[in-house]
Design a protein around this nucleic acid. Sequence first.
DNA 1: AATTTACGATACTACAAAGTTTCGAAAATA
DNA 2: TATTTTCGAAACTTTGTAGTATCGTAAATT
Lengths: 206, 206
Amino acid sequence: MSTTIKPEDTHRARGRPRCEDSRSRILEAGLELLEEFSFAEITADAIAERAGASKATIYRWWPNKDAVLVEALREAVAQELPFPDTGDLREDLRLQLQNFIKLLTGRRARVFTAFIAAAQSDPEVAETFQRVWREPRRAAAKAGLERHRGKQMRQNADLEMVLDALYGPLYYRVLTGRGKFSEDYADALTEIVLKGIVNPHQGRTL
Amino acid sequence: MSTTIKPEDTHRARGRPRCEDSRSRILEAGLELLEEFSFAEITADAIAERAGASKATIYRWWPNKDAVLVEALREAVAQELPFPDTGDLREDLRLQLQNFIKLLTGRRARVFTAFIAAAQSDPEVAETFQRVWREPRRAAAKAGLERHRGKQMRQNADLEMVLDALYGPLYYRVLTGRGKFSEDYADALTEIVLKGIVNPHQGRTL
DNA sequence: AATTTACGATACTACAAAGTTTCGAAAATA
DNA sequence: TATTTTCGAAACTTTGTAGTATCGTAAATT
């Protein structure tokens, strides 16, 4: 799975060093193409052309075309929204859903749908999607929700289920619906999930 | 979009009539392949070979390879589970989710993931999936839920939202998770959604 | 300056799959 | 029986793309 060849850290290698600019242009080109095309539709030639690079350079540093796209996702996803922490459960849920809907209705949405589609038939893409996106995101969300356990959130809430209830409808709508979200979608979904997990001992304080 | 050429209904055509057996063998072959491979991985040759038919016969009756798979889905989906009607909202939800989970953990699951994946980059597949599967299913579910409105279900429940909350987590798990469902997944999800839509005026009677 | 490695451009090879055509045989009609 | 249309088999053409190889040049080290 590793793609980029690591140079020795200690001393500079001989000859001309790798052009970091072309590396980032290639990844950026891959990401831009993912905003418009599916995995299979994106050709190595198209990446090279858009990046203003040579196809030879792509295959010099990546084992194949898909590895470029995989690394492009990894880079794009690196700095993503942390789970909110307002102290209030409802507000945390609402903000998180709103942020994610914003992501899923923007240009970058197709990057995710393209990846999920590709993952259905390519185990390597699936594994990367899990490791690079899904697992870290779910871990962050779990930690964010865990703070409320026993307080606003009921003690025995099943977070795996809660996360599915939160994110499932969003992915579902983007993948099988037409990707439209009403203005108050995040609010409405928040209320449903909230009622399902709220601590009954504190019902009056909400 | 229409695929099969309709013969004149009035009088039999001249020459040898179309072999209905090969037609159904081709569709069945397409469906079986969809249980294992993605849209793009399925070749016309593979369909022909598995069907014991000729590739020429495929192209005699379908405009292209994808049309075969699209029609295969349509046929396979024709006789599907109706929305349950036990009279009890909780029971209806539970049965419906259980049935759907059973479908999504069986062989046919990959037919759906393959279609949803293909729909991400093929508008025609997307349109067919909407018309043949999603819309009729949602309409049936809506009608099933509508019976409870104002009774066990609150008067102003937004069914679009409710359906997303019900089906979203399931599709989400199959498409981006690993397709595993715990034994009590349907029960747990039912309770969450139920709390979100239940009629507060009848809270005590549930 | 000599050497080494990377770069972009481009030609090239290899291959897989879509879709077509041909052929001899089979199944229907008139 | 003559005609029409389908069938399966298989050869064939066409096209798209992955990946490689070549070449002249650029940027680094020694």
